[in-house]
Write a protein that binds this DNA or RNA. Structure first.
Length: 308
DNA sequence: GATCCGTGGGG
DNA sequence: TCCCCAAGGAT
């Protein structure tokens, strides 16, 4: 095990990307924001948005002082905008329950909106140097191949995986933090889901999957449907709301602007994209009502807008 | 445990 | 072109 630790953390020391949230001076708030943004979203798309967020809201109190809709608007096109809502709620909880300071224990972090087992462990480890069993999709995949000899981890996180990850974690605090970051980075850059770059792998000679002849996955991951789904419609509606500076009347969503006899100010492009989907009226209604339910939109002066 | 929830770059 | 999938979380 010492061998794996040395090899992988050594590789990390040489190869690691220079990401701003890895800067020692970044602070726990910056780490928390990065972790929420990075949920299901690639690093390259997070970088510019993260920079703007931290410039605008350097502290949880700064974000908490603004309407939730501002968080959603500045989330831009990162996707899964509920994360923006939860991050705003987390900032509020941090101000109210933790004197404005991001909590430093796994349990307290886990209680924050939008923070699950992965994010709680990651913030405790990367922001506060704690020894935590961090398990994300990258770490799961590296463990699956390196130790279990499988092409992919199980469809859902299992207790066995958690035990394995815990057993591999170095005893020393600082070493455990480096290990977590290094394995995650290895999964992100080398031991990738598609076309892993085994030639660049620091532990290829110890890899159970390679030793087994790289057997194919034992199951086929089911892809996420997109075209024609409510998610697609919701996304198109949100694109309109982000650009709107006044409530958008419901009929603008339900009828092509040309039929309304006027060109909408500023929101013409996303509105045209929405109507290009040609969704059934029931689906549009369902999507928009879902946005209200989720708190991503509200009705004001007879129109839809981001929550104020 | 299965589903739902956005977006866009790369293979 | 199409399809895969990326530092998950909540229900």
């Amino acid at each position: 095990m010492e061998f794996l630790h040395r090899r992988i953390t050594g590789w990390f020391a040489e190869t690691a990307r220079d990401l701003p949230w890895r800067d020692p001076g970044c602070g726990a708030w910056g780490v928390l924001v990065s972790e929420i943004m990075l949920q299901q979203t690639p690093v390259v798309r997070v970088l510019p948005v993260w920079e703007e967020w931290l410039k605008r809201w350097p502290t949880p109190a700064g974000l908490a002082a603004e309407p939730a809709g501002e968080a959603v608007r500045n989330w831009g096109r990162l996707g899964y905008p509920r994360r923006a809502l939860r991050l705003h709620a987390a900032a509020t909880a941090i101000v109210e329950n933790h004197n404005g300071r991001v909590p430093d224990t796994y349990t307290e972090l886990l209680a924050l909106p939008g923070v699950g087992s992965y994010t709680a462990a990651a913030v405790a480890a990367f922001a506060y140097g704690r020894r935590e069993t961090v398990v994300d999709t990258n770490i799961r995949r590296v463990h699956a191949r390196l130790v279990a000899g499988a092409a992919l981890p199980a469809p859902a996180l299992t207790a066995a995986e958690m035990r394995l990850a815990a057993s591999l974690l170095p005893d020393d605090d600082a070493a455990s933090v480096r290990w977590n970051a290094a394995v995650m980075e290895l999964g992100a850059l080398v031991c990738t889901a598609r076309a892993p770059k085994c030639a660049d792998c620091p532990v290829k000679d110890s890899c159970a999957w390679r030793a087994a002849g790289e057997p194919p996955p034992s199951y086929v991951p089911k892809g996420q449907a997109w075209h024609g789904t409510d998610r697609q419609v919701r996304g198109a509606v949100m694109a309109v709301l982000r650009l709107a500076d006044a409530p958008v009347p419901a009929e603008m969503f339900l009828q092509p602007p040309a039929d309304l006899g006027f060109a909408p100010e500023g929101i013409g492009v996303p509105l045209a994209a929405l109507h290009r989907l040609n969704s059934a009226p029931e689906q549009l209604e369902r999507a928009m009502s879902g946005l209200l339910t989720d708190g991503l939109a509200e009705i004001h002066d007879g129109g839809y807008r981001l929550p104020a």
